[in-house]
């Protein structure tokens, strides 16, 4: 597996998942998935709807129960209750920017909240810096979410996740609710932030293009199980071994005729 860690993966892993399993009642959503994320590395989780990829993120964040196996963040195993400090180091960006911002709070209030919770002193500077970093500027600071477009909302959500200066960013399909041109903007922004901050991240997506754009390594998942682990380079070169991955690749290329159009 060591050849799969990519160039940026040096140093002790930020996060290790060891045979992680998540049950919702009798339903096993995630079944024994293991992986690790090294500092500065971006790991992709890809698969169809219901393959358990988002559930892995939610289990890491503490929003879904860890039923079996273990998740270790910076060496410490994560239990059912997380310390406040954990949330300072791990942040999440949700799929739907229309649902992830409080409808009655201004951008300013949304960004102040994590600073107030973690009692971070230089709030004023951080809010300005976070808004600049996601390319919004101070003109957006006192707007309500309904005064923002989808892409702008997602930028606010990213700013909120970055404001505590986390080590690990969990991205749950951050672009799938946005239209194509805005998707590209958000992807470039995430790429920029990652390079700038040397941030580790786990990106969940059903879109292979998005994953290869942002991640060095990816795990292909199907019905809660790992199908295979690849580097993005292998995927682009078509060096895949499992038929399911091939299917996924074919699907992401869009519709194609198997036979030439008859004259």
């Amino acid at each position: 597996m060591s050849d799969l860690h990519g160039k940026s993966g040096t140093g002790a892993p930020v996060l290790i998942a060891d045979a992680l399993g998540v049950d919702f009642g009798p339903f096993r959503a995630v079944d024994g998935v293991s992986f690790e994320v090294r500092p500065g590395e971006s790991l992709g989780l890809v698969g169809e709807s219901g393959s358990g990829k988002s559930t892995i993120l939610r289990a890491i964040a503490g929003l879904a129960p860890i039923s079996s196996g273990a998740v270790r963040f910076e060496g410490k195993p994560l239990g059912k209750r997380r310390e406040k400090a954990f949330y300072r180091h791990v942040q999440m960006v949700f799929q739907d920017p229309y649902g992830s911002l409080h409808p009655r709070q201004t951008v300013d209030q949304i960004l102040s909240e994590p600073l107030a919770i973690h009692r971070i002193a230089d709030g004023e500077r951080r809010i300005r810096q976070a808004l600049d970093e996601v390319g919004l500027g101070s003109g957006f600071r006192f707007r309500y979410p309904h005064q923002l477009s989808g892409g702008q909302r997602q930028r606010v959500a990213i700013a909120r996740a970055l404001i505590t200066e986390p080590e690990l960013l969990l991205l749950d399909e951050p672009t799938s609710a946005l239209d194509a041109s805005v998707q590209a903007e958000i992807l470039n922004l995430l790429e920029e932030i990652r390079q700038h901050r040397r941030l580790s991240s786990i990106l969940v997506s059903h879109d292979l293009a998005v994953i290869t754009h942002l991640c060095e390594r990816l795990i292909v998942m199907q019905s809660g199980r790992e199908v295979e682990t690849l580097t993005s380079r292998q995927l682009v070169a078509g060096e895949v071994t499992k038929p399911y991955t091939r299917e996924l690749m074919a699907a992401s290329e869009g519709f194609r005729r198997k036979e030439p159009v008859p004259a």
């Binding site: 300072r88 919770i117 973690h118």
Partner: peptide
Amino acid sequence: NSDFIAAVQLMGASPVR
């Protein structure tokens, strides 16, 4: 169960808050 409540939970906010 909305995402914006999950987001403040993920900031480490207490239930009272």
